[in-house]
């Protein structure tokens, strides 16, 4: 029995491309309220696609062929498109991978941030402005007047990501999808941004689906982890348990492939052939089973 209702519950989600290829393979994962769930996997595994599916912005070419997504108990698939948009708009937010393209280059920061609160929550412009300033303070932007008047390209990458983090938390969403939010940043800035997200997450009690390919980040920020390979969740565990005793060979290989400061080169092993062969047959078997049940 589950005492708390999950904030996000994805049940057996599969998507296909126009050519029939299955990209997500019966993905199940849930995020409890106020919990950080890391979604880790190599590039192309389908992490971003899961995030887009949740936020309702899958490309038109990608079709959902199986599965349900429940946002705070509401089945997104059952809602009318308009009601779904409103629900997603009010309860979720995205911290994107590339803070440059996530801001409109020809609009100033201020209106881009307040627009949303006015539009989603129906706030007055004044109230939205106050709220935005409060959040800018929380992300340690000390000169909000200047920043709000800037165009995105006038800010540094780290500043842009701070602005986007502030914007994401401003509407008090229940769930934030953070899609590799530090990947595009300088290493020195990465740490600050990560710390900031963790801090705001704690203070606001927001659930986060934290997409990353970096196990080091997983250890720092999350309570639970799902390991994704080729659109299939191969392992799921509490973060501490996963690091203490990884079950799946792929997870073990991934850990072995993560560089350590003490011995950066010795530990940089590519994923073992045997592990990959095992994964391939595992995925082939899953696809067979899926084909049989879905004709």
């Amino acid at each position: 029995m589950n005492a708390t209702r999950p904030c996000l519950d994805i049940r057996s989600l599969s998507t296909v491309l126009p050519n029939g290829a299955r990209v997500l393979r019966s993905v199940s994962l849930s995020v409890q309220p106020s919990e950080v769930r890391a979604l880790v996997g190599e590039s192309g595994a389908g992490k971003t696609m899961i995030g887009k599916a949740v936020l309702g912005v899958l490309p038109l070419s990608v079709r959902i062929v199986e599965g349900d997504m429940l946002l705070e108990g509401e089945d997104l698939g059952r809602l009318q498109p308009k009601a779904r948009r409103t629900l997603i708009g009010a309860r979720t937010a995205l911290i994107p991978q590339d803070p440059l393209t996530a801001l409109n280059p020809s609009r100033r920061i201020g209106p881009q941030m307040t627009d949303r609160l006015v539009r989603i929550l129906g706030w007055s412009g004044q109230r939205a402005d106050l709220r935005i300033r409060q959040l800018l303070d929380e992300v340690q932007i000390r000169d909000p007047d200047r920043v709000l008047k800037c165009y995105p390209h006038e800010l540094s990458g780290g500043m842009r990501q701070r602005v986007l983090i502030a914007a994401a938390f401003a509407a008090e969403p229940r769930l934030i999808v953070a899609d590799e939010p530090t990947t595009a940043l300088d290493v020195t800035v990465q740490k600050q941004i990560l710390r900031l997200i963790a801090q705001l997450q704690r203070e606001h009690g927001t659930a986060i689906l934290f997409v990353t390919h970096d196990l080091g980040v997983v250890a720092k920020i999350s309570q639970k982890v799902s390991v994704l390979y080729a659109g299939k969740v191969v392992e799921e565990a509490e973060t501490a348990a996963l690091f203490a005793a990884p079950q799946h060979p792929y997870t073990r290989a991934l850990m072995a492939a993560t560089p350590r400061y003490t011995d950066p080169f010795a530990s940089l092993k590519p994923v073992d052939e045997a592990v990959l062969a095992g994964l391939a047959s595992e995925i082939a078997a899953a696809d067979q089973a899926w084909k049989r049940s879905h004709g």
Binding site: V57, R85, I88, G89, T101, A102, R116, R119
Partner: peptide, 10 residues
């Protein structure tokens, strides 16, 4: 991405 962001925002 900002277009996608606007869609997420409703």
């Amino acid at each position: 991405d900002y277009v996608e962001n606007a869609r997420i925002a409703g």
